[in-house]
Design a protein around this nucleic acid. Structure first.
Lengths: 160, 160
DNA sequence: GGCAAAATGTCAACATGACTGACATAAAAT
DNA sequence: ATTTTATGTCAGTCATGTTGACATTTTGCC
């Protein structure tokens, strides 16, 4: 079958075929990248949303609910359900903020850390394989492009 | 469990911080990359699933339902709902296969092509910006890493 | 010719994760 | 003292995925 053909690249630019390849790589990489953890999560009765919460709370212990909402860019009602399940089942701990007592500072329990590890190690291994195969130079290129695709790489990722 | 807790130094050149950065870049890039089309789709009463169908049918006119299922890796029941809406509303056309009359060969109508364009051009512009800013060398690195992250870059992407 | 397998469609029930809108409480900031 | 912020909660809805079961048409094989 003849797929759509695109004009050759103009100097210094990229043609539509190359750009579309990137669109597709994002889809395929993300699809495969999330498949393994999804399978593990299903065994716990959890979904991808739980993984995201566990991941970012593990990455930034002591973060507030606001911080998390800012990173995930979902509504607090959506987050609430997932977070409540994780707290109720002892994966995430909440402690009242010291300076600001309205805040609930989030962190992983030992149980939460264990789950985070089992989920993330698959993804880390996948990335490590890809990085090692591609080499340091390629990884630097990958970083540049990924940051360029992201709206504002500094937002929603502040240290907490 | 028998998993290795800490990667042996010989395993690769990249530390966990660098690998985790990649995990996060995938999340943030994908999140922002899908936000713009999602907004447009919402105006049509469609979702991201419709976009994926429109995208791949546009990319591979004449593809079969089987081909599409192989790419999207969802169940036929999930696809059916989305596809039926797109066909009913005149975005996607189905014609019986010539050689194999069981097949429904999919393609975009003029209306479908217009929607595909309006959705994809935002994403193409985003990628083009990132590619131009990063440079040819970085784009090649990006490609290598993304292909390495994907399970089998040749599968689910065959020419139809 | 007969029959199994393939390509597709469809019905039903359900889970997950997102949304909007409204309202409540406690603490901080003004 | 009042407003704003951080958080929580209830209720309803929607989009997208799942499993399981079954039907139709067509192809390919013995």
């Amino acid at each position: 079958m003849t797929d759509i053909k695109f004009p050759p690249p103009a100097a210094g630019h990229f043609n539509e075929g190359q750009l579309r390849e990137a669109i597709e790589m994002l889809f395929f990489a993300y699809r495969d990248f999330t498949a393994e953890p999804d399978a593990i999560l299903a065994g716990h009765g959890f979904g991808r949303a739980h993984h995201r919460v566990i991941y970012f709370v593990g990455r930034h212990p002591g973060m507030t609910v606001s911080d998390l909402l800012g990173i995930l860019k979902i509504t607090k009602q959506s987050l609430a359900r997932v977070l409540r399940e994780l707290v109720d089942q002892g994966f995430v701990a909440q402690v009242q903020g010291e300076r600001d007592k309205r805040q609930r500072r989030l962190s992983l329990t030992a149980k939460g850390l264990a789950l985070e590890k089992s989920l993330t190690e698959r993804q880390l291994a996948r990335i490590a394989r890809a990085f090692d195969a591609a080499g340091v130079q390629s990884v630097e290129g990958f970083r540049k492009v990924m940051l360029g695709i992201t709206d504002d790489p500094s937002l929603g990722r502040k240290s907490v």
